[in-house]
Measured scan of single mutants.
Amino acid sequence: MLDDRARMEAAKKEKVEQILAEFQLQEEDLKKVMRRMQKEMDRGLRLETHEEASVKMLPTYVRSTPEGSEVGDFLSLDLGGTNFRVMLVKVGEGEEGQWSVKTKHQMYSIPEDAMTGTAEMLFDYISECISDFLDKHQMKHKKLPLGFTFSFPVRHEDIDKGILLNWTKGFKASGAEGNNVVGLLRDAIKRRGDFEMDVVAMVNDTVATMISCYYEDHQCEVGMIVGTGCNACYMEEMQNVELVEGDEGRMCVNTEWGAFGDSGELDEFLLEYDRLVDESSANPGQQLYEKLIGGKYMGELVRLVLLRLVDENLLFHGEASEQLRTRGAFETRFVSQVESDTGDRKQIYNILSTLGLRPSTTDCDIVRRACESVSTRAAHMCSAGLAGVINRMRESRSEDVMRITVGVDGSVYKLHPSFKERFHASVRRLTPSCEITFIESEEGSGRGAALVSAVACKKACMLGQ
């Protein structure tokens, strides 16, 4: 009897593995994704193909990295998701002549009506938060230079001027797309009239992360975010950046690689679950690469896999709870928690219980395998993109072996128990001629924006502006 049951459990697990095998990517698959990513990057950089390229390769006008001589107080704003952060950054000489960066910050959550109302409502709310922060720190009387981390696709015309191309991540505030974001912020500050600010720089969160990590390690020339969304930036040779005049030196390019796949480059790798996630998203047909990796989508992918296993009578005796059938019910943090389970399955059992399920031991094991399959594919897909960037940098610099540091931020990278190990191992397999160091950014977005502002202020002083 026991043997029969054991055989049935083994057969069930084997069927589960057959279904989950769809998520496995072979090294040849990853090399294919990497080569296609490089081709799209090239198209994004070139003037004649930029418009139709899915990977936009947006110039950021960040050319210099901090040298350690900029000092002063800077205000930093960070808008990239449902939370908005205001930070005071003091850049100065530390002990023994070292450079020191001290920060104080406060988080504000953005109400739904500000995210989806008008641009005026959104930026009025942001300036209200700045006003509140300055009151708390008794700094209303000071006109501070301000660095703005704005983590949406922007076409820069200068370091302090950028046109919002399109909202992502659930934002829909009308009247912002096609307009200068810094102008919208300046107008809102003017409307309030109770404080003055000098907006000197606007950067993407990947750029802010790279600059913040450069402060720790001067070989950091790539910034990457794996959180709600997924994106990367890197220092490109100016001669390859056709959208900006000049051939000397390097400029940081914001790849906006989340949109890779929007022209069909990933079609052969998309599964039924991916198509369902895409169809029910706020932007169907867009940001397809990001939807395979980002935390906004990972939990939902797992939920759809679990429903398939229920329908195949391989999980929960073929019956799903009402909660499990509800879109968004299986949160991405559950994926991390399930994979963090120590082996007694308590954590998995508790999560499934909150979803109205009474799982068996085998159910718990199957749910864990589903989570591992989805998150491992995410790590491997992400590795193909980064390997594409790094191999490109090595080739354009004609280096036999390139040493490089990548600064990384984002909740999936930082909080998932195995993502970074799987990701690092896969990147290294795909970049055999590179020695890569990964560092995690601390308060990256805010500190990085302030350091970019410090560079901009120093330049302005040198130019006598």
Rank of each mutant, 00 (worst) to 15 (best):
D4I: 06
R5F: 12
A6D: 04
K15D: 15
L20F: 14
E22V: 10
L30A: 07
K32R: 05
K32E: 03
V33T: 03
Q38G: 02
T49N: 12
E51W: 11
E52A: 09
M57F: 02
L58Y: 12
V62E: 00
V62S: 02
G68L: 11
S76W: 04
D78R: 07
F84H: 02
G92K: 10
E95G: 04
Q98L: 04
T103P: 02
H105A: 06
M107V: 08
A114C: 14
M115G: 12
A119M: 11
M121F: 13
L122K: 06
L122N: 08
I126L: 08
L134C: 13
H137G: 05
H137N: 14
L146V: 14
H156I: 10
E157A: 10
L164M: 03
E177V: 10
V182D: 11
L184Y: 15
A188D: 01
K190L: 15
V200P: 02
M202I: 09
M202Q: 04
T206V: 05
T206R: 00
T206Q: 04
V207Y: 00
T209L: 06
M210F: 09
G223I: 00
A232Y: 03
Q239M: 10
N240S: 03
E256N: 14
G261M: 10
D262E: 09
S263I: 02
Y273L: 11
L276A: 12
E279M: 15
Q286A: 14
E290T: 10
G294F: 09
G299D: 13
R303Q: 07
L307V: 08
E312F: 07
E312G: 11
L314K: 12
H317P: 10
E322T: 12
Q323K: 09
L324F: 12
E331M: 12
V335H: 09
L355N: 01
G356T: 04
G356A: 02
C364A: 03
I366T: 04
R369N: 07
R369F: 09
H380G: 11
M381T: 03
D400L: 04
V401P: 15
R403D: 04
G410Q: 08
S418G: 11
R422S: 15
R429Q: 15
T437N: 04
S445T: 10
S445A: 11
G448D: 08
A449V: 10
L451D: 10
V452G: 09
C457N: 11
K459W: 06
